[in-house]
Simulated assay, not measured.
Amino acid sequence: MLASVLCAAVMDGGPLPGGAGLTTEDLNKLLARCFSSAPVRNLVSTENVVPTSDEEIMVRDLLLAQRSTEGETSRWLAAMIARRAMEPNHLWEDLGLRERLELSRLLARHFAPLAAQNTKNMRWKRFFYRRLCEEEGLVMCTTPVCTQCNDFNHCFGEETGESRMAERRRDYLRGVEVTSEPPAIRRRK
């Protein structure tokens, strides 16, 4: 999972720490711990620091408050998920995963209390923002019952499609030049 998120961040271009949602120090720790045989250890410099938005901090803190595993990995995952949640596609796509089910399993393992609250299988980004609004005493919904809402399909609709990694591989095999620039962005939250 960590490698998928790092790959997705690299594909988007820009500084890797910012794209992954980690500080330079945390990214170097992650690389040393999880990818010790890879030649990328300690290649990330402090010049690649990107400021964290308030929105990203709120999502990260929501995840951290609901984690079910201790240690650096869940802390890194919370920061990475929060950062990638700022991207425009489905969260599983922006994390570089193959399908939504992988994201659901990740959240159930590392953030079980939060994942267990998504009893209606709402899209994860929408669910995170709904929880944040509820914590602040705000209501983001226009109707009291989801099935009566005009935005129902935005919150609960299908999340299918080709993963970003599969798309890049297909382009590579077809001989299409693959750059670090992101593909045409589809607005799907």
Rank of each mutant, 00 (worst) to 15 (best):
H90S: 02
M140D: 06
E55W: 03
M165Q: 14
F152Y: 15
N150D: 14
K125E: 06
A65T: 05
L106M: 15
R100A: 14
G157T: 13
R98A: 14
M165N: 10
L64Y: 03
R170S: 11
Y129L: 10
L114R: 09
D94E: 15
F128G: 08
L101F: 07
C149S: 09
Q148V: 10
R168L: 09
G137M: 06
W92E: 07
P113Q: 11
R84H: 01
W92C: 05
R164S: 11
E134L: 13
C141Q: 10
A65G: 12
M165P: 00
S74D: 03
C149V: 06
E162D: 11
M122D: 03
N48M: 15
R130K: 08
Q66L: 04
A112D: 13
G137W: 06
E135G: 06
M122G: 01
Q66E: 15
N48P: 00
L77T: 01
P51Y: 05
G137H: 04
D61G: 03
A115P: 07
C141M: 09
W92N: 02
E70M: 11
T143M: 11
R98T: 13
T46Q: 13
T119R: 14
E70W: 07
S104Y: 05
K125T: 08
R67W: 02
A85L: 00
C141A: 12
E159Q: 15
R164M: 12
E135K: 11
D61R: 06
A65S: 13
L64C: 10
T52H: 02
T46S: 14
F127A: 03
E167K: 14
A116S: 15
Y129R: 03
A108E: 15
R67E: 02
V49D: 11
L106Y: 08
W76H: 01
